[in-house]
């Protein structure tokens, strides 16, 4: 891609679906669904993650997510948040498939409530169950290149390593591992979890990721809608920097002004 290529032409494809926005946003922790929808718009997101839970039978008239975030505007990516076994994940996503009518899903199988760290052994087992059931699963995982490869071999349509723990906002803790995962993957790689501010998102993209998924960094900013806009620009900037190819790192200075002709 040369400098004249238009931003709109820079697309990415997952499971046969093509998107322009490389920023996937969550829909949790917002003040209300109206703020959530405004932030998703400001982020320029085309995909939003959603969770599946029991309807509140005592108050069936309470606001519903799909009244604010319209399924014809956003691709819903149902998650398996709160699932600790493969069977729970499959049961949840079968219901999500019935509710949403599509099979693109986000698999996350967590190990414990304190770290929400992915249980990779169980994640891999759950992925195999989902693939056998016809799902296209984007998989939340640790930043281990070996497991990333195993997930890809088992049929993951995207690899989504954590930058840091969910909701921690600590930024990408192991750039080398993210780089290794990007380098070997033949499916899209998206940093999922750990982004705290705009520069973290830019770093993810500068490492060559195809996209970034975030929730708390936007929802818990003082001004979520403004932060959503900042994240949109950070993802674009990081992506453009990756495509442009950064200069080599040098230990010592190299003058920008020529020495010849000095008075």
């Amino acid at each position: 891609m040369d400098g004249s290529s238009r931003l709109e032409d820079d697309t990415w494809t997952v499971a046969g679906r093509t998107f322009r926005s490389r920023l996937i946003v969550g829909t949790g922790k917002y003040r209300d669904y109206a703020q959530n929808a405004a932030a998703a718009e400001a982020a320029g997101a085309e995909i939003v993650t959603v969770a599946l839970r029991r309807v509140n039978l005592s108050d069936p008239g309470q606001p519903m997510l799909i009244d604010y975030l319209k399924p014809d505007r956003f691709t819903f990516l149902p998650n398996t948040a709160g699932c600790f076994t493969g069977e729970e994940a499959v049961r949840t996503l079968r219901l999500a498939r019935e509710a949403g009518g599509w099979d693109l899903v986000k698999l996350e199988v967590l190990s414990d409530a304190k770290t929400l760290y992915p249980d990779m052994e169980e994640t891999l087992r759950a992925l195999k169950l989902l693939v056998a059931d016809g799902f296209s699963a984007m998989v939340y995982c640790n930043d281990d290149p070996v497991y990333a490869r195993k997930l890809e071999e088992a049929g993951a349509v995207a690899i989504m390593p954590l930058g840091a723990l969910i909701g921690s906002g600590l930024g990408i803790q192991n750039r080398l591992n993210i780089h290794l995962i990007v380098e070997q993957a033949k499916v899209p790689v998206l940093v999922d979890a750990g982004v705290g501010t705009a520069s973290d998102a830019a770093v993810a993209m500068e490492l060559g990721c195809d996209g970034v998924l975030m929730n708390t960094a936007i929802a818990q900013a003082r001004d979520p809608v403004r932060m959503a806009g900042a994240m949109k620009h950070a993802v674009i900037a990081g992506r453009q920097a990756w495509l442009a190819g950064r200069m080599p790192r040098r230990l010592y200075a190299e003058a920008s002004s020529p020495m010849a002709g000095l008075i």
Partner: peptide
């Protein structure tokens, strides 16, 4: 019977 719907999540 379980009746579910989409809610906010990450």
């Amino acid at each position: 019977i379980e009746i579910v719907h989409f809610i906010g999540g990450g």
